[in-house]
Write a protein that binds this DNA or RNA. Structure first.
Lengths: 182, 182
DNA sequence: CAAAATCGTTCGTCAAGCCGAACGAAAGGA
DNA sequence: TCCTTTCGTTCGGCTTGACGAACGATTTTG
């Protein structure tokens, strides 16, 4: 895929996500409509200043203009996952998720006490949460995809919609990786 | 910081990291020396094609050209860590580590069976490992800073020196985050 | 229904980036 | 020591991207 095409697609995608017209975006970014039109048409070869203006106007990190598509969820039970080959049989590593080059990841240890479900509001668009349960049982996930997980389970889901955490019986300890776009 | 300056710094940084001369890089990327010279001097406003050629020639992801500048160890016991404030008392989150903008993070689930210590060779320079123990007891870390950890413990250490993993009694399950420079 | 506004595209002009050549400086070889 | 190579910078040209204006098409307003 040519860089021009990637950027063309990215601009259009981000613009439509922001629900803004081509003309309006051009105005906001201080660019000519014609310039933007050609860029989205894949007929351009923009310079940094132009791209920077666009990223700023769209309110997105600069590097978002160089990405193709988006991500989804995955539930990997404690017994599941593709093990990494090892010469030593007493060692098993499962790659839960590979970090794409355009994201940031913050690690949280979460102690969840039994009681009412904790509801979390939507995080910024594109946020993904990775939950790795250490002990206890937890029901969590976005409202339309809640899962019960046990120790060793790994559940990845979109964090940009409202979601819940609930300890089912006793305390629960889990590692939470907040995975957000740059 | 202006985008031009960022890119100028990034190019020079990546080029020097690759131990390659300006002339050689220009040739490899199919650019004129003059172009590259001006870019590194912060006097340019390059277009995508030019940047793409540079990223390709340098063998780095495109977005690395838009990042500014560039770890150590930390042992956080299960009972330790600064909790994130929460309005709900049945929820406790501890930020184990904040992801700097210039790194990548891959998550591994590791099952360690008792037996001889597993020795791991040094990873690329700057690599950091984050270990979050789910169950069992494990002795791990670089040879000069081995620690015993228990369930819920989090241990972060340099991965660019030889280090070991050893289950102390029975199986051990842990989440391993491989944190490597771009 | 017509006037007005807004949409996105196309065209000609001008500025700016990329190129090739020439330059002085520094390092290596005969 | 002199010659050769390589380094990075500077200087005209030529190409190309950004701009502004005008266009037809579509939607909104009175």
């Amino acid at each position: 895929m040519t860089p021009t095409a990637i950027i063309a697609a990215a601009i259009r995608r981000e613009r439509e996500l922001a629900q803004i017209s081509l003309s309006a975006l051009a105005a906001k970014a201080g660019l000519a409509k014609s310039t933007l039109s050609q860029l989205e048409g894949g007929k351009g070869n923009p310079n940094v200043e132009t791209l920077w203006a666009l990223a700023t106007a769209l309110g997105i990190p600069f590097s978002s203009l160089f990405e193709a598509a988006s991500a989804h969820g995955a539930l990997i039970r404690a017994a599941e996952g593709v093990s990494i080959a090892s010469s030593q049989s007493d060692f098993t590593a499962v790659l839960l998720d590979k970090c794409p080059p355009d994201r940031r990841r913050d690690l949280y240890r979460v102690l969840l006490k039994p009681g009412a479900a904790r509801q979390s509001d939507a995080h910024p668009r594109g946020t993904v949460e990775h939950a790795f349960l250490c002990s206890g049982r937890v029901r969590l996930g976005p409202l339309d995809a809640v899962e019960d997980i046990g120790p060793g389970d790994y559940y990845r889901y979109s964090g940009d919609a409202a979601h819940i955490y609930e300890a089912l019986a006793g305390e629960a300890l889990l590692l939470l990786v907040m995975d957000s776009p740059r």
